[in-house]
């Protein structure tokens, strides 16, 4: 199938990719070196390919690249400051043992970021519910729960 152009905003800058219609957003991003977006299952189950699409967390294996025409995509790399400083959400994961192998981490971080934008002070149940689509096999989630709580504190301090 012939390739077509898709224009979108990636982490704040305009990009143009050439993709086949069947190319998922996950594969397109990875093909262009945006490898924080991981392929863990490509079946909408694991959450390692999470991106924020116009601020909303989605699994990029369930999105066709051509569908993001004119839209905005944020990945974990995009959260890092220009000075190389981690975003408070990322920093919280480092501080609280929310990371082990690191494969689920970019997705976890993005979902947490989106959660805290929507709900700056989430309860235990709200945290569980928001992160239920991001699987982690290493941490048992307990370190991730601490990280989300910590991230909420850090963001509050920053505000």
């Amino acid at each position: 199938m012939t390739k077509r152009e898709v224009h979108f905003t990636l982490n704040g800058r305009s990009v143009t990719y050439e993709v086949e219609p069947r190319t998922t957003l996950l594969r397109a991003l990875r093909h262009h070196g945006v490898t924080s977006v991981k392929r863990g299952c490509e079946e909408g189950e694991c959450g390692t390919c999470t991106v924020l699409l116009d601020g909303v967390p989605v699994k990029s294996c369930t999105v066709l690249a051509l569908e993001v025409e004119g839209r905005s995509v944020l990945t974990a790399e995009g959260l890092v400051g220009k000075d190389g400083k981690l975003h408070p959400v990322q920093q919280a994961f480092v501080e609280e043992g929310g990371i082990q192998c690191g494969f689920c981490t970019p997705g976890m971080v993005l979902t947490t970021y989106a959660l805290l934008k929507k709900n700056p002070d989430p309860s235990e149940d709200e945290i569980r519910l928001a992160l239920a689509g991001n699987l982690c096999r290493c941490t048992g989630y307990t370190g991730i729960f601490r990280s989300v709580k910590r991230a909420a504190e850090l963001l509050k301090d920053q505000a």
Binding site: G44, G47, T50, V56, P57, V58, K59, T62, V63, T111, L129, A130, A132, G133, N134
Partner: peptide
Amino acid sequence: HSDWLIRNR
């Protein structure tokens, strides 16, 4: 249904 990320699509 599924999870937040899927429900968003």
